[in-house]
Computed example of a mutant assay.
Amino acid sequence: MIIRIMGEGQFEVPGSLFDELNIIDNRIVDLVGKENEADYRTELSRLINVIKSNGKQLDDASIVESNIIVPPEDLSLQEAKEIFTGSGLLED
């Protein structure tokens, strides 16, 4: 699975990581809906860190279609309301 973190590049992560990422993604959707900015920021940071620590960063010269695009860590809560809706970034 190829995941792009906006502003940081693409990472190849094992498909076995999908469930863990989906749990974090669902928490983010819930926190954004509750307008809980502090915990939203913590979970977005966790999502990005899990991708980076378990994935292999691809060379910037590689052109590969991303399966998922994750917003940058500094995404505002207001901007997150437009992205983290419904089932979030990852769909079951």
Rank of each mutant, 00 (worst) to 15 (best):
I5P: 06
R46K: 15
G9M: 11
S87P: 01
I23Q: 14
P72Q: 05
E12Y: 11
K56V: 10
N54H: 15
R4H: 07
E82R: 14
L77S: 01
A80H: 03
V13P: 05
L90E: 06
E73C: 03
N49V: 01
I48T: 08
L89A: 11
R4A: 13
A80V: 02
I24S: 02
I23F: 10
V29T: 08
S62Y: 03
N49I: 00
L75P: 00
F84M: 08
L58Q: 06
L89K: 04
V64F: 02
G55D: 11
S62F: 08
L58R: 13
I24P: 04
L21S: 07
L58N: 02
D25V: 03
E79N: 05
L90Y: 15
L44A: 11
E12I: 07
L31T: 00
N49A: 14
I83F: 04
N22Y: 15
L21R: 09
S45C: 05
V29K: 05
I2H: 11
R46T: 13
G9H: 11
D19Y: 11
A38G: 04
I28V: 12
Q78G: 02
S53G: 07
L77T: 01
E12D: 09
E73I: 13
G33Y: 00
L90A: 05
Q78I: 10
K52E: 14
L21I: 08
S45Y: 10
R46L: 13
G9I: 09
A80S: 08
L90I: 14
E73F: 01
Q10F: 07
E35D: 14
F84G: 05
E43K: 15
I83Q: 01
I51G: 01
G15K: 14
S62K: 15
E82I: 01
I3L: 12
F18Q: 09
Y40E: 06
D59Q: 12
M6Y: 06
V50E: 14
R41S: 11
S87F: 13
R27D: 14
L90K: 07
I69W: 00
